[in-house]
Amino acid sequence: MTRLAFSQTEGKTLPSGFAQCTGVSLKPSYYQQILAELPKVGFFEIHAENYLSAGGPARYYLEQVRNHYDLTVHGVGLSLGGDETLDLEHLERVAKLVEWTNPAVFSEHLAWSTHQQYFLNDLLPVPYTEARLDLLCQHVDQVQSRLNRQILIENPSTYFEFQSSVLCETQFIAELVQRTGCGLLLDVNNVEVSCFNHQRSPCEYLQSYPMHAVKQIHLAGYTLDEQASLKIDSHDQAVANEVWQLYQHTLELIGDCPTLIERDGNFPDLSELLTEARHADHLRTLVKEQSHAEPV
């Protein structure tokens, strides 16, 4: 029942800001500049867990920003890939935030972050097994039912693969989509990072990815570890050239798609993020023009 209900959200009209122009992460250091200058941005994305307080500046400024822009809400704490039952108290708080902000999309991760009563504050990987898929599907169904909307699941950045995995990542994600009716948030930087770390071809990864379910794209920067042998999904650098190229390739595969410039650390002047957003818009325009020019 849940799957059918959420697959019906296909084709639902998206808010125009979200659909048309690239968004950027909303961070406290940008609040006042955003409200003073109202820059041309499609939407702002928040991390749900940073906006669950009853008051204070986060909630105050979010309300102001919401008056001018579309929002997307990105959860980082539901631990959908975990062994344990979901933290219902936390789900309830997230649900209240989603009801209050009415975001264009709500997204979460193919990862786990809670063990017993402890929150580990990282997006930890899961083995791609049938048993894990069953658990993840249950959790995604549960969240979609409580939020009463389709949610998007983001592909992870991973630094190792499990021996015990029996499915490849794209198969696992495709099964998840088919069983739950969830949509996908395709993080292109994560594709670059994971494929580099596991010596795979990012283009082949995208070729086998269930692109029909992608409703949003994330772009971010990475760093290299000390030995320069692993790429780390740090979100504290500008989007790298190879990620821009992979993004362009993704757009060529799926056509235009709502996109976010994601930044979580080493914050530059807001203008730098806006420049990256404009570059994404430029690439999106090119792909739209291309699709119009193609003979029917």
């Binding site: 990282d122 083995p127 630094y159 190792f160 693969e161 499990f162 021996q163």
Partner: peptide
């Protein structure tokens, strides 16, 4: 033991990221 890698050192290096 459940981490793919060519050596224990490599597996631990990967785990150390987390």
């Amino acid at each position: 033991n459940d981490i793919k890698g060519h050596s224990t050192e490599e597996r631990i290096q990967r785990l150390n990221v987390y």
